[in-house]
Design a protein around this nucleic acid. Structure first.
Length: 216
DNA sequence: TATTGGATCGCC
DNA sequence: GCGATCCAATAG
């Protein structure tokens, strides 16, 4: 367990005109080593701007995938058409399609060319919650974005977003409320290799974390 | 070109 | 617990 002491004001920020906005993370944020980034992302906001609307959620669960060193990573065997975004510079979205139904969102990390990334596994809905409910055909707030496929559906993210910068107008990362966050770690979900690594990070006792499923 | 299995989800 | 569903990677 790692205790964080920093406290910040509530999110999202309210503008003078009453419109909601979010304070973006610094450009250097994405230069953190991947395992540190996976922890640092907890508490940050993913903001998706779509149809003049802001959909956002606080990151409560992540997993690190360490490129060529990591047999569970899509990047393990080097560059392919699907994973090429992973081998680019950090701070871009790697979005892929899995299991014939779902999309998953990653933050590319590590120096350009390393193929590392952090999978965003769960969000606590913050703004645009009614739209997320429609996107998910789901009323329960704790079931809107508590899984990598669910959060992409909630935020209308698919492979068209692959390669998008996390500093773009459609998609970006913003500061969140990090007060009293306690980080726990575990093995990663749904993989068949690299099972022993404790590279999944999540906010302890947060109800918006995914339902952990043991790997086959 | 065919086959296999997947960084999942929702329902049985 | 299991099937849906389809694409990417590999030649199982």
């Amino acid at each position: 367990m790692i205790k964080s002491t920093s406290g910040e004001r509530q999110i999202p920020v309210e503008r003078e005109n009453g419109e909601r906005c979010h304070r973006r993370v610094s450009r250097q944020f994405f230069d953190l080593p991947t395992l540190e980034l996976a922890r640092a992302l907890l508490g940050k906001l993913v903001v998706r701007e779509i149809d003049g609307q802001s959909l956002s959620g606080r990151i409560v669960e992540t997993e690190a995938y360490l490129g060529r060193k990591d047999p569970a990573s899509h990047a393990f065997r080097g560059v392919t058409r699907r994973n090429s975004t992973m081998f680019g510079p950090p701070g871009y979205a790697y979005v892929y399609f899995v299991y014939g139904n779902h999309y998953c969102l990653n933050v590319v990390s590590g120096p350009d060319g390393t193929g590392e990334a952090v999978l965003v596994r769960a969000l606590q809905p913050i703004s645009g919650i009614e739209q997320m409910k429609r996107n998910r055909r789901q009323e329960s707030e704790t079931n809107l974005a508590n899984g990598p496929g669910k959060l992409c559906q909630a935020l209308s993210i698919d492979t068209r977003m692959n390669g998008t910068s996390f500093e773009s107008d459609m998609l970006y990362l913003a500061e969140g409320n990090n007060s009293s966050k306690t980080i726990a770690r575990s093995t990663r979900v749904g993989i068949s290799k690299g099972k022993e690594k404790l590279w999944r990070f999540y906010l302890k006792d947060n109800p918006f974390v995914s339902n952990y499923r043991e790997t086959r």
